[in-house]
């Protein structure tokens, strides 16, 4: 796995010009837009870098050779998840630092805990995003993967919209009051509890996705 990790890092370093453009545009945009934007932007770029490495692996029919090295399909999938995790946390950390510098330069008043809380909330969100993206990319490749992702997004949004409508129509007035009471109670929970719950859910999804990806890679032929 160390060899694969080294390969992915070296390939990313080769694209340093692209990184400079990303960072410069993020810093410029952070002054123009909401200050939390820079954290979400950095985290998104960092966590999705793994997809670039999957594309590079498949360029020039590289996969047969990579799979002849002392790694299994399972190790390959695990390395991609580990790499995405490293990318996510490094980019998130950079985003947070840039965010704070921007606020200091703009001389705005801020509450450190509140700000950090907002920034941390991006982590589970992007964990779930990469948990969906990696298996799709491994199974269908970069081009087909985009189409599959669009279909999945459409299905999820459509199901959620229809599900909510049907559910609300079926609910009696008394049930509706109870539901509103439950939701109100949920929103009154301490922020840290909600955040911890989000992290737990995100990591559970992350590990399930890693397991699914290992299965995909073990069955794949080259």
């Amino acid at each position: 796995m160390n060899g694969l990790l080294e390969k992915d890092i070296l390939i990313l370093i080769k694209q340093k010009k692209l990184f400079i453009i990303y960072i410069a545009s993020a810093i410029m945009l952070s002054f123009a837009m909401d200050s939390t934007f820079v954290v979400s932007y950095f985290t998104m770029i960092g966590s999705l870098l793994v997809l670039t490495t999957i594309s590079y692996d498949t360029f020039d029919n590289g996969m047969p050779f990579l799979m002849s090295l002392p790694v299994s399909g399972k190790t390959y999938a695990q390395e991609k998840f580990l790499f995405s995790l490293i990318g996510l946390f490094v980019s998130w950390g950079t985003g947070v630092v840039v965010h704070f510098i921007t606020i200091l330069l703009q001389q705005k008043e801020f509450d450190l805990l509140d700000l950090l809380g907002m920034d941390i909330a991006f982590v589970p969100f992007f964990l779930i995003i990469i948990s969906v993206m990696i298996p799709i990319n491994l199974k269908y490749g970069a081009d087909k993967g985009r189409i599959v992702l669009l279909v999945i997004c459409g299905l999820v949004v459509g199901t959620a919209f229809l599900g909510k409508k049907i559910f609300m129509d079926l609910l009696k007035d008394t049930d509706r009051i109870e539901l509103e009471y439950f939701l109100a109670k949920l929103s009154s929970l301490p922020k840290y509890a909600v955040l911890i719950a989000c992290f737990v859910i995100a990591f559970v999804i992350f590990f399930i996705a890693m397991k699914i990806s290992s299965g995909i890679m073990s069955k794949k032929e080259y």
Partner: peptide, 21 residues
């Protein structure tokens, strides 16, 4: 018809091989 990424140099391949074998 398959090998290391064309973006890499031998110097970089050495680093990968060191950690692979």
């Amino acid at each position: 018809d398959s090998g290391f990424s064309m973006m890499l140099s031998i110097k970089e391949i050495v680093k990968i091989l060191r950690k692979t074998y």
